[in-house]
């Protein structure tokens, strides 16, 4: 059971990946009109580790967009699966907006998301 095929269109995500900006160590982010929140991407199970784990992302973006970003970053094949988990408990639906998850499940100013290539929890 998986929801991996249910993301936004890849073509749409590709142009948006360029907009995902690095979060600098001193906490500065590039100034835009959009509200950004910090997410921390942690590998689990057999998933490859991401060299850069902390990212500042547009709070209005959906989880499906993050999934496509991670798949692209890890250079996964289009048919490879990727699962994202919040609180190491539940897999948010791809259309859930980052801001809602950050408000409810963020800790210490960031939202921790675990990713893996097979179903890890539930």
């Amino acid at each position: 059971m998986s929801l991996e095929n249910t993301c936004e269109e890849i073509s749409q995500s590709e142009s948006q990946v360029e907009n995902l900006r690095e979060h600098k160590e001193n906490g500065d982010t590039v100034k835009t009109d959009k509200v950004k929140v910090d997410i921390l991407l942690k590998a689990t199970g057999n998933a490859p580790i991401m060299k850069k784990k902390k990212w500042a992302v547009d709070a209005e973006k959906p989880i499906g967009w993050i999934m496509e970003f991670v798949k692209k970053y890890l250079k996964l094949e289009p048919d490879e699966k990727l699962f994202l988990y919040v609180n190491q408990t539940f897999a948010p639906s791809p259309d859930q907006v980052i801001k809602n998850l950050y408000e409810c499940f963020g800790t210490d100013g960031k939202l921790v998301l675990h990713y893996c290539k097979s179903q890890a929890w539930g």
Partner: peptide, 17 residues
């Protein structure tokens, strides 16, 4: 099965809250 996976995940999210 996809509906079930979505449903169970939402119940889990609610239980975390």
């Amino acid at each position: 099965d996809i509906v079930e996976a979505h449903y169970m995940s939402t119940v889990k999210e609610a239980d975390v809250l």
